[in-house]
């Protein structure tokens, strides 16, 4: 620390000597720089502290729950009915709801977002790009309640009429509709970050590809995309976290009935939908039913953390420098 400071001071005075005057200004700029560094450190520490605080609250609040419910039942039980007179505490049904809706959302958002990103970065003329990007970002500014009702009143009926033709019956509350709408909502997250990553790929790499006789699409898919893979991976990871954490859309349009199923045509509840349902209901604080939302939150946290770690590891594995 002190060595740092003296280095910085030395740099400052050398600067001052180089322009032949103003030693005081050199000192001032060093002080400002130290101040900024300290501010940045505080900001970084604050985000770590908040995360730790969340973990702490989750663990503390779910402790009474786990004193009452065995870990085995929590992990392997197939029913989640904490508010019934005969309560069951298997987290599986909630997690399956989260998994299914997240998977549907990613199936929509990853391809669509990537295609939009490729178009924006490799095809769109500058002026059009600058017009399209804010419009796309507007999508993620729409309140999720609106998306929830969009799923319930527009997308699900459309899916119902399509599926009816092949004699498939889609209930009003299902996971498919909200999953798709969630995917649409996430597209800008994927496209915006992926586009940044692709535009950061040096022109020299594209020139190398064109010079060998490649066209735009080949260059985009076989050179730019792989070169930007680490950034695109980050975009996918963010999209997934966003989908896992999404609450309102599924709470509104997927029904609130925890069901252990992988079938997107069934209604189900996700972890977050359950949490908001209980938190907004009249379950007495301190009851096991109330504490169960912290246990569910903790489970979600662990799962998301796991996915993020896997994503980070994959990105490190495929990292390409250019």
């Amino acid at each position: 620390m002190s060595q740092d400071a003296s280095n910085a001071a030395g740099r400052g005075s050398r600067l001052a000597r180089a322009d032949g005057s103003l030693g005081a200004r050199g000192l001032l700029s060093v002080m400002i720089e130290r101040g900024i560094e300290f501010g940045l450190l505080l900001a970084a520490l604050a985000s770590v502290a908040v995360t730790l605080g969340i973990v702490f609250v989750l663990v503390r609040e779910s402790a009474p729950f786990f004193a009452h419910v065995s870990l085995g039942e929590f992990l392997f039980g197939t029913e989640w009915t904490p508010l019934f007179s005969d309560p069951k505490y298997g987290i599986g049904p909630l997690l399956s709801g989260t998994f299914v809706t997240t998977t549907i959302a990613l199936c929509v958002a990853m391809p669509a977002g990537t295609i939009v990103a490729i178009w924006l970065s490799e095809y769109a003329p500058h002026r059009i790009r600058e017009m399209v990007k804010p419009v796309l970002e507007l999508i993620s500014a729409v309140p999720t309640v609106v998306f929830g009702y969009f799923a319930l009143t527009v997308v699900t009926p459309m899916l119902q009429s399509v599926l009816a033709r092949i004699n498939v019956d889609l209930p009003t509350f299902n996971m498919l509709g909200p999953g798709i709408v969630m995917g649409i909502m996430i597209v800008p997250y994927v496209s915006s970050l992926s586009e940044d990553a692709m535009r950061a790929v040096p022109m020299l790499l594209r020139e190398g590809s064109y010079a060998l006789g490649a066209g735009r699409l080949t260059t985009a898919l076989r050179v730019v995309f792989p070169a930007a893979l680490s950034g695109i991976g980050a975009a996918y990871t963010l999209a997934m976290s966003r989908a896992v954490g999404e609450t309102m859309i599924v709470a509104i349009a997927a029904g609130q009935k925890p069901t252990l199923t992988a079938n997107p045509l069934e209604s189900a509840a996700t972890v977050t939908a359950y949490i908001v349902q209980v938190a907004g209901g009249d379950v007495p604080h301190g009851s096991i039913g109330y504490q169960s939302i912290f246990a569910a939150g903790l489970a979600l946290f662990v799962v998301t953390l796991g996915f993020n770690l896997v994503g980070a590891a994959l990105r490190r594995r495929f990292r390409q420098a250019y």
Binding site: G208, A211, G215, R222, Y322
Partner: peptide
């Protein structure tokens, strides 16, 4: 230009291997 570039190669000032 694609047909023409198929017949004329280029080596750049800075090496630019593809991420492959």
């Amino acid at each position: 230009p694609i047909e023409m570039r198929m017949r004329i190669s280029m080596v750049f000032q800075k090496p630019n291997p593809f991420p492959k």
